[in-house]
Design a protein around this nucleic acid. Structure first.
Lengths: 201, 201
DNA sequence: GAATTTTTGTTAACACTGTTAACAAAAGTA
DNA sequence: TACTTTTGTTAACAGTGTTAACAAAAATTC
């Protein structure tokens, strides 16, 4: 009975065409503005057919999130395979990670829940400069007292902030509520490494 | 003419009551589910009055984002003032930053555009484990070859990922599109610091 | 104090969202 | 051919942000 197989094949194709249409939406207007109606419109079917193939909108986004992690894994593995020394691997993977994030920007935003309204918002906030100023001045002072006062304070500030924000947001994505005190060891580890990197060496 | 003053005072109070009601919403259900209608309901006025005091919903969120950065600045400054040595200040500020993020969780999410649907999503993605595995194995190898093979690989992995994600998302929030190559120096700086911290010392 | 203007607030709608129940049409099976 | 299952549609529900048209209250002018 080849007809049952044809059916599931057609079902797969249909599902794929939904994802295809959805992805077009995502890359052209961002995943924020992805809508079931627009997908239905694009595939020229009525709305409820989509719910025959996906439980809800979230399930569609989940699909892309999976794809994103798959692609990231592949990329990391490929890059890793090009080196032998772990330290070199780590460095190369870091660059690959960076490139992935910006080359597959939509995937990355989906994977890490970057809800982009903040982009427009953050850029019009003067209050942010105050916080920035406090941190930068401290970095400057630390560099001035260090053995290599020629270091780029602005670069070091970005590094400092990125470490902090990275730690926090990764933690927030993984679980809600305040993480236990043991998690603060990660902070301690990262930040003391950073401080050493500017104060001595 | 005290009546004009009373008017603007009342206007201020009204505005404050809107923000108050909005904030109640935010802390009880997250800023995702904040709605103009619910605010109107809470203050027992009709919907359009809110638009007399705020241009749109975004303006209300912007207000909280500002508040968030103000609070963060205050916190950082206070903590900084308790120390003299820049290195100590940086460390103390890092911990203060961490505490702020989790103690004022709603503010932080707003400030950095953490669009929390990803929380539920990320936790049901097995594909994520692959990527994690690749990175962890490399970290393990690096530690094994280092001078202190007793180091906690899981901690180091979290540090590694956090640095990467922090760099990327801070960059993404600030501007869209791929950042210029010079920005990659921040990555280079942070990651080489990290690598040194595990390979030698 | 009455008439007029300005401010303030309301109702009702528009244009969107995700989701689903009720039903019709097509396809496969007996 | 008659029946069942799958597939698809229309129409609605319950939300969302936002705004135009209008009524009521307050302040100002005559």
């Amino acid at each position: 009975m080849g007809i049952a197989e044809r059916k599931i094949r057609q079902k797969e194709e249909f599902k794929a065409s939904i994802l295809e249409a959805a992805w077009q939406q995502v890359i052209s207007d961002g995943w924020q503005s992805l809508s079931i109606r627009k997908i239905a419109d694009a595939i020229e079917y009525s709305i409820p057919v989509i719910y025959n193939h996906f439980e809800n909108k979230e399930a569609i986004l989940l699909e892309f999130t999976k794809e994103g992690f798959q692609k990231l894994s592949e990329t990391l593995q490929e890059v890793k395979d090009q080196y032998e020394v772990p330290a070199q691997q780590l460095e190369a993977m870091a660059h690959a990670y960076w490139d992935f994030a910006f080359d597959h920007n939509e995937y990355y935003q989906l994977m890490f829940g970057l809800g982009i309204p903040a982009c427009d918002r953050v850029n019009q906030i003067i209050e942010m400069k105050t916080a920035t100023g406090i941190m930068i001045s401290t970095i400057k002072a630390a560099i001035a007292e260090s053995n290599h006062p020629e270091a780029d304070y602005f670069l070091k500030y970005h590094t400092y902030l990125s470490i902090l924000h990275g730690l926090v947001s990764i933690q927030m994505i993984q679980k809600e509520g305040k993480p236990d005190a043991s998690k603060k060891m990660i902070l301690q580890d990262a930040i003391s490494g950073f401080i050493i990197s500017i104060t001595s060496k």
